[in-house]
Each structure stands twice: as C-alpha cells, then as structure tokens.
Amino acid sequence: MDTATSAPAPPDRISPTKRRIHLGRWGVHAVLLAYSLLALGPTLLIIMNSLKSRSAIFDDAFSLPTSETFDLVGYDTVLNGSSFDVYFRNSFIVTVASVLLVVFFSAMAAFALAEYDFKGNTMLALYLAIGIMIPIRLGTVSILKLMVSLGLINTLWALILVYTAMGLPLGVFLMTQFMRQVPRELKSAARVDGANEYRVFGLVLPLVRPGMAAVAVFTMLPVWNDLWFPLILAPAEDTRTVTLGASAFLGQFERNWNALLAALTLAMVPIILLYVIFSRQFLRGLTEGAIK
C-alpha cells in the first residue's frame, strides 16, 4: 500500500463509535441472555430434576443429576398406566383438522372477498371480522346446548367445529390481506386462458402460501393449548386432549414428585422439540401475520 506514505496516519486511539457499538453489543447480549435464562430456567429445572431420585430433588434442586442421584423412577410410574398416547392422538387430530379447515375455508372466503365486487361485500367482511374481537367462550352456554342437541358431546367433532369457528375470523381477515397482494394480471391471464373460477382459485393458492402458513400458526397455538372447551365439551377419558389429559393426570400425582416431574417433562419435551425444529418457519408465520 503505497498510499500509507501520503495518507495521514489513522488515529491510533480506539474510535468512540467503535467503543460505543461494542458496549452496546455486549449490553444487548447481556439483557437477552438474562431474559433467555429466565425463559428457559424453570423448564430446565423441571427436566433436570425429573432425572433425579426423590431425596436429591429436595436436597439440592439446582444441581445436575449425578451418577449417585440419577433415577428414572418417576418415568416408570408415569409410563405404566397412562393414556398419553390417546391424548396425543386426540390433540393431534383436533389441531390438524381445525387448522386445515380454517386455512382452507378462510382462503376460499378471502378469495371471494378480495376478488369479487358484490353487494354486501364490505358488510360480510365486517361480519366475519367481528369475531376477532369477541372471545367465543362467551357463547359457551349455548355452544354446550347446541352440541348436546347435535349429539356431539364427547366427540372430537365438537372441538373441531368450535375451533374452526374460532379461527375463521382472523383467518379470513389475514387471508384477505394476502389475497389482495396477488397481482390482478395473473388472475386475468388465467381467465383469458379459459380457466374457470375454481381453477383460478387453485392457481392463486400457492401464491398465498405465506398467508396460509401465518393463518396455520395463529390457529394452531390456541387450539393445541386450550383447556376450556375440552373440559366442557369433551371431558370423557377417550376424547381428552393432551392439555386436559395432562391436567387431570398430573392431578393424580399430587404427592409423587418424581412422577410429577417426569410427567411434566414427557408432556413438554415433544412440543419443545417440534417447536425448536420448526421455530424458523413458525416465527416467520407469526411475523408475517402480525403486520397485516
């Protein structure tokens, strides 16, 4: 570098900008790390202690299991005689079915709302959107009566229908926003090419995939975690969801700490794993939905 001779020497003190940035950077890390500990700590404490013997749990809750304190007695108790497989299956069916129905039906409705200019379009959109603001739980009394008269009590269908109705308002609203972004030319081109409306819809669907992902994520969380409706509409042993099942199941072990900790671990580890694996997609869906 022959310029070094002609150029003034760079200042050899550390630049204040740099210093400030570094300080800031460490500050950011410190705060986020502290909060991460707060977010993870309780969960880790449970998992850690579920692997320890009873006396170790109480003697020193904050130490990792060692070869002396390692004990799987809790898991023995829990795995013998639990119906977690049934609960998981129920939750899975209910969640997947509700999410699929919400995504598909809201895509259809949103397509119509965004695409056709018919009388009452705005009114209908508003009608469907009101549900975003009103918790469906307030209608529980009548929902219960309705389900009784339809003979759907203690069936998964009761849950699926209610959750679908619950997810639709937000779903339609979000999908309409996404549908509006699909270029008009594309739909016109398809129609000119002789596509009927169903085909046009089929053509548009893949283009609003981010929207469908967002709706799916927004629907999934409250459905999977709901305790209220399973408790009221489907409390029978064979229709319990994980949430309700875990609630009742954990209740049985009020005094058996090994079993409690093991059961908690079993109930949350699959979710945590799923979440960690799909967190990128999951959070992207939430992010995209949030700004609509």
């Binding site: 119509a112 009548s142 009566k145 109705a165 308002p169 339609v172």
Partner: peptide, 25 residues
C-alpha cells in the same frame, strides 16, 4: 358464493349464533 359458504356457515352456527343465543338466554 360457493367460496363463501363454508366459512360463513360454520362461523354463524358455532360462533355468532351461540353468542346471540347466550345474550337471549
């Protein structure tokens, strides 16, 4: 209209109707 029917029906039957019916009750 076929596009709107499923969403509108499910929403009306399982959400709007129960809410209004609750009010009535």
């Amino acid at each position: 209209m076929v596009f709107l029917a499923p969403a509108t029906v499910i929403y009306s039957v399982f959400m709007v109707y129960p809410l209004l019916d609750s009010l009535r009750r």
